[in-house]
Design a protein around this nucleic acid. Structure first.
Lengths: 195, 195
DNA sequence: CGCGACGTTGATTTGCCTCAACGATTGTGG
DNA sequence: CCACAATCGTTGAGGCAAATCAACGTCGCG
């Protein structure tokens, strides 16, 4: 059953009847992304919100100079989407692209409205998830202005120990807000300091 | 009528009956803060969510080294609070302090639950507000890693032209993520460049 | 009045960027 | 299947933005 991980995830937050589970399975469709394929592009409307079953994705913003900045990664059991675009229909602020072949469970805005009507308790879960995202970006911002790149890197490693195996190094550099060259030097410095 | 500004604000989002307005007026209590007084402290539970009627406040985080970082200001018609602490009862991530004598309309968690039951359309409004906050912090983060302090300062001035009259300069520096000395130099450079 | 809060200026240091070059690996078309 | 291109990580030299440390003037207020 492909929806098993999602059901388990939701049951961390709320209790589901068998009927609820069936509704959820019917609402979320399996979707495959090839490596480098996009879930949606910055500027387009984001019409899919996704739960990652497996694979790895990156969420990034392209600035006016054409530089890409990784806002986040998306790993199994994480949610990915542009909520403002998804709910309000505005152009997406960022792009989402698979770094590896990935399996997702996706839902569209109308279906999500339906789902909320059928299982109102889900509203609470998603509200909490949005709050966590908000806190996460507050922390990223604080780290960006008050910590060195070394500290931010160590911090990332502490949160996602196997991140190096999951995404290429220049994507990690982008996530940290530095250049690949700087991350390379930084890592060497850390290794030499450890001796 | 002290709740007038709040009613006007809400009516930008949803339509209110006279009965709704009465409910809102009953739910939000007027609160006064003296200069330097706190709405709540980092680490405490945030039991008040506030709508600013007038005055100026700062939202800030104290890091492990004791340095304070301004996450945001709060000006008339802005909301201020720690949503995660407010809803989940966790310790507040930041502190909120009045920079000037300020008038607020405040609500407590239980009252807000009541309010949502009576006027469900408000849930939608607050969801949109949270999304805007999320987008705002994404932008702050991106600016912090990809723009110079000059650009961030110009950006702030564009968004809040009279910010210099509202808050002292070292608070602005903190908001920008730089030291007061740097902001002072930066401003002189901009003035000289203009000549 | 005198103290503390605030802003300014100077000298020096540091963290990361910029530009450039170069191996190693991956992947792709002939 | 090989050859060549593209992608990725590393290393070096030099530069710049902002931090750091320190000193000083001004203003407002108890």
């Amino acid at each position: 059953m492909q929806h098993e991980d999602l059901i388990n995830y939701i049951e961390q937050y709320i209790t589901l009847s068998d009927a609820d589970k069936q509704i959820i399975c019917d609402s979320y469709k399996v979707m495959h992304l090839d490596k480098k394929e996009f879930l949606f592009h910055q500027g387009d409307r984001c019409e899919t919100e996704a739960f990652v079953l497996n694979g790895t994705l990156r969420v990034f913003y392209s600035d006016d100079k054409g530089n890409e900045h990784v806002l986040n990664f998306a790993l199994p059991t994480w949610w990915v989407g542009d909520i403002t675009s998804f709910y309000e229909g505005s152009p997406a602020f960022m792009s989402v692209q698979a770094l590896e072949p990935s399996e997702l469970l996706v839902i569209r805005p109308e279906q999500k409205e339906e789902l909320f009507k059928k299982i109102p308790a889900l509203e609470r879960m998603f509200r909490i998830i949005i709050q966590k995202h908000l806190t996460s970006y507050q922390n990223r911002f604080l780290a960006a202005i008050s910590k060195t790149a070394d500290e931010r890197y160590m911090n990332l490693l502490a949160r996602i120990p196997n991140i190096e195996q999951l995404v290429p190094q220049h994507q990690i550099a982008s996530y940290l807000g530095i250049l690949p060259e700087s991350l390379s030097r930084l890592k060497r410095k850390l290794i030499e300091a450890k001796k």
